[in-house]
């Protein structure tokens, strides 16, 4: 940011709001009580800038101050504080080039060179009055870096070539639609979606629902092609064949969870007759109870577990290898032999 001063010469002597701006001014003034109307200073300065070809002249600022019955110096403070108020004339298309870190890393410096070549120095206006540019801080579109704002719109994912193209079209008086300049939608991945592409993710079938209500009408067919790349497929919405999954089916689904390995054999002895499994380090009252439910009651049983058994119990208890880490089997073998002796 450099020193900002009014261009008093270009500003002329007078300024008046356009007639069509008056309702907007009334709207903003209406938001604040009469004695607090100076709160509307920023919106009014902004409107004055719009009505003055994109920059705020000194008479325009005074007009705002008079409207709001503010001392000139107070409005001057606001106008110089916010860099969005431009105190010098700008071109019909004013390019604000983001030079903050993400954009800079993605090549904003190259874009600057394009601006310098096509337009000239910062804040200089081309002879035909069509273009001017300045460097600004982050415009909040880092995900589409590097980018510029031209007048009110964002032009994103630029390369020196695409910016050059944009500028030459604007210089020729041709409008350029804003948005991204690479193959992507908004800030979605380039070249289309890379994840969450399965239609099943979105039609409810995963939850045993055969159809969700109020989904937008699918284009055609049972399994339609995605409309645009990267857009998740949507199944045909129906309201009629909707089914609530019953509790039984949910539980049944749980039962069906398959565990790897082999379930260890249950013993005949009941829990009271068995050993105190808590003696094994790593087994507390809760795990003991779960093991008892499986029919595991004695040290000998655990000592006799095969590798497959260990795998299964590990999965059942969601242990992720704790049995081996805590060497339950060795502990059980020792305890079983001690019991015998």
């Amino acid at each position: 940011m450099a020193l900002r001063r009014f261009d008093l010469e270009a500003g002329g002597e007078t300024f008046a709001f356009k007639a069509e701006t008056e309702p907007t001014i009334a709207f903003w003034l209406g938001k604040y009580p009469e004695d607090k109307k100076r709160s509307a200073v920023i919106p009014l300065l902004w409107l004055a800038q719009k009505d003055n070809n994109g920059w705020l002249s000194e008479p325009a600022m005074r007009t705002v101050a008079d409207r709001l019955e503010m001392p000139y110096i107070r409005v001057y403070e606001v106008a110089t504080f916010y860099t969005m108020f431009r105190l010098q004339p700008v071109g019909k298309n004013h390019v604000q080039l983001c030079g903050t870190t993400p954009c800079m890393l993605r090549g904003a410096n190259d874009l600057k060179k394009v601006c310098e070549k096509r337009i000239g120095k910062k804040m200089a206006v081309t002879d035909d009055g069509r273009l001017s540019w300045e460097e600004v801080e982050c415009l909040g579109a880092c995900v589409n870096a590097p980018m510029v704002q031209i007048n009110d719109y964002y032009y994103e994912d630029l390369t020196p070539e695409s910016l050059d193209e944009i500028l030459s079209r604007l210089a020729g008086g041709v409008d350029v639609p804003p948005g991204t300049f690479v193959d992507r939608q908004n800030s979605a991945p380039i070249g289309g979606a890379t994840t969450l592409k399965e239609a099943a993710l979105f039609d409810g079938s995963r939850n045993g629902v055969s159809g969700l209500p109020n989904l937008p009408e699918a284009t055609k067919g049972d399994n339609p092609e995605p409309e645009a790349k990267g857009e998740p497929a949507r199944s045909k919405p129906t309201n009629t064949d909707r089914e609530e999954p019953s509790k039984a089916t949910v539980e049944a689904a749980d039962e069906e969870v398959e565990l790897e390995g082999e379930r260890p054999a249950a013993s005949e002895a009941n829990a009271e007759g068995g050993d105190d499994l808590k003696k094994i380090k790593g087994i507390g009252p809760k795990i003991e109870k779960q093991l008892n439910e499986l029919g595991v009651n004695t040290f000998a049983q655990i000592a006799a577990w095969s590798g497959d058994n260990v795998k299964w119990v590990d999965g059942y208890l969601s242990f992720r290898g704790r049995i081996e880490r805590e060497s339950w089997i060795e502990q059980a073998k020792t305890l079983a032999s001690e019991d015998k002796s």
Partner: peptide
């Protein structure tokens, strides 16, 4: 008399009267 103010900001802040 509201004639003195601080214009601009940060490193460029300056005390001045209106113009």
């Amino acid at each position: 008399v509201e004639e003195l103010g601080m214009i601009s900001r940060g490193e460029d802040a300056e005390i001045t009267t209106y113009l």
